[in-house]
Design a protein around this nucleic acid. Structure first.
Lengths: 143, 143
DNA sequence: TATTTATCCCCCACTTTTCCCCACAGTCTA
DNA sequence: TAGACTGTGGGGAAAAGTGGGGGATAAATA
């Protein structure tokens, strides 16, 4: 399970070090793709394949299915870590997530997310106040 | 499986390089045809044949079936890559997809899509805002 | 039928990008 | 304090993408 928050730099070549703590779970190759809030999702192969299977069950004749599949699959890239444990982020994803230099890598259970540091701080502070309301509607009964 | 996003140029002769990453899956000959959002779909032969079978199962007595089959089949062309790994796009498809110079080639699971860069950016930014909503309604239960 | 015109491929050469390797600095551990 | 590990930066070789020229084949015209 992915937990925690790490602050790493992405360099001019689009390389960013994956926290060593995660490498055991991720292995040497895995998938990254566009995330919904302009961040990057990092999935172990199994998890990603599972989502793809779900998406493939949707017909391409449905507009929303096309849009989401395009969004999700076109952003996806198979990553292999180099000997230093870094992932090479393709430039379309770098610009999608507005990664400049300072990045944040956070674990969110079944995946990692890579954020631009400023964007992450902004997002977190913007919903900190609402968190009480957000939590309110998540579950009906006791968890 | 086709994933990823590549930015290539189409030249005056209508040639565009298919990303080398895809050539293994596609092989040397495959099918391209009109896609729904004014882009070009690229299918391996098997996949294309499978869709054709599906379309043929629709009765020609239905107006929509006739229209869509006509749309899909009339645009189709068999492509052979040249020795540089480029596909020659027939001019009707070039104009259908408004390809000028800068193009985007994206993988969407079972096929590739070739877009004019401007058109692609426009489409993606137009549905970026909705992507959260779209994702919201795609699945009811956990995927 | 012969000549011209156009089209399509193939090949070569250049540029750009990508990938892989090495090196260094800071931190933690034994 | 020495050694190992982690994160960061840069250089060089190889691959991928791009553009243009030339020859073969097909179409068009006299």
């Amino acid at each position: 399970m992915f937990i925690g928050e790490f602050h790493h730099n992405i360099d001019d070549k689009g390389r960013i070090a994956i926290p060593s703590k995660y490498r055991d779970i991720l292995g040497n190759d895995f998938i990254i793709t566009r995330g919904i809030e302009h961040c990057i999702y990092v999935y172990p192969n199994d998890t990603f394949n599972h989502i793809v299977t779900k998406l493939e069950s949707l017909p391409f004749t449905k507009k929303d299915a096309r849009a989401f599949t395009r969004f999700f699959m076109s952003g996806a890239t198979a990553i292999e870590l180099d000997k230093q444990g870094r992932a090479n982020i393709p430039s379309p994803l770098v610009s999608y997530a507005n990664l400049s230099k300072k990045c944040v890598i956070v674990g969110t259970g079944d995946r990692l997310e890579i954020w631009d540091e400023d964007a992450f701080n902004e997002f977190m502070s913007s919903c900190n106040d609402e968190m009480s309301d957000i939590a309110e509607n998540l579950f009906e009964e006791k968890i």
